[in-house]
């Protein structure tokens, strides 16, 4: 409901240009940074990786911005995930209206041995966070009722809608899906 209010107020401003002043606080709230409450932060090699459980990761899955948000579930040991990562990176770099978040499902004890070196070697520019929540049976259906738990998996969403994909992407497929969210 808050979304619709923000949209409504934005429209009033665009449409009539009268109530700009009194509605400014709402606009600021809209572009506010997401709330970060990681359960752990692993640091090494000048890289810092935040670790979240399913509850604290929610803000990343519900960003209140004007972008197309792309959430990719991956792991350093997952070959098809690693194969498609450059496409997410390229799209994030090429398109300022797209925000990529890479959610690693690497085992938490492997973050300093695997995830941080991987970020460094591949010079990842998208944000990488780790989801550490052992009971997939609880949270996987909350991401999507049809997700079998196989990775790679991706969510694309904006303020209006959200689609879940249990598949690998080529760059063209990814760009095409993301563009569907822009015609709104």
């Amino acid at each position: 409901m808050r979304n619709s209010i923000v949209v409504l107020i934005s429209l009033f401003i665009v449409g009539c240009g009268e109530s700009t002043k009194e509605n400014n606080p709402v606009i600021e709230e809209e572009i506010e940074e997401i709330v970060r409450n990681p359960i752990n932060v692993v640091e090494g090699d000048d890289i810092s990786v935040e670790v979240y459980d399913f509850e604290t990761i929610q803000p990343f899955l519900n960003k209140k911005n004007d972008k197309v948000n792309v959430i990719n579930f991956w792991a350093t040991w997952c070959k098809p995930c690693v194969a498609e990562l450059p496409y997410f990176e390229d799209l994030g770099e090429k398109d300022p209206d797209v925000e990529i978040t890479l959610i690693s499902l690497d085992f938490p004890k492997m973050i300093d041995e695997q995830v941080i070196p991987f970020i460094k070697e591949n010079e990842l520019k998208s944000e990488v966070i780790v989801l550490d929540d052992p009971n997939g049976n609880e949270w996987i259906p909350k991401i999507d009722p049809d997700w079998s738990g196989a990775i790679p998996a991706t969510i694309i969403y904006n303020q209006e809608e959200s689609t879940f994909y249990e598949q690998s992407f080529t760059f063209e497929e990814l760009e095409k899906e993301v563009n569907k969210f822009k015609t709104k």
């Binding site: 070959k79 997939g136 997700w147 079998s148 738990g149 196989a150 990775i151 690998s168």
Partner: peptide
Amino acid sequence: ETVAIGCSIK
């Protein structure tokens, strides 16, 4: 029926 994270079949 339950679900868990796993590696996609290659």
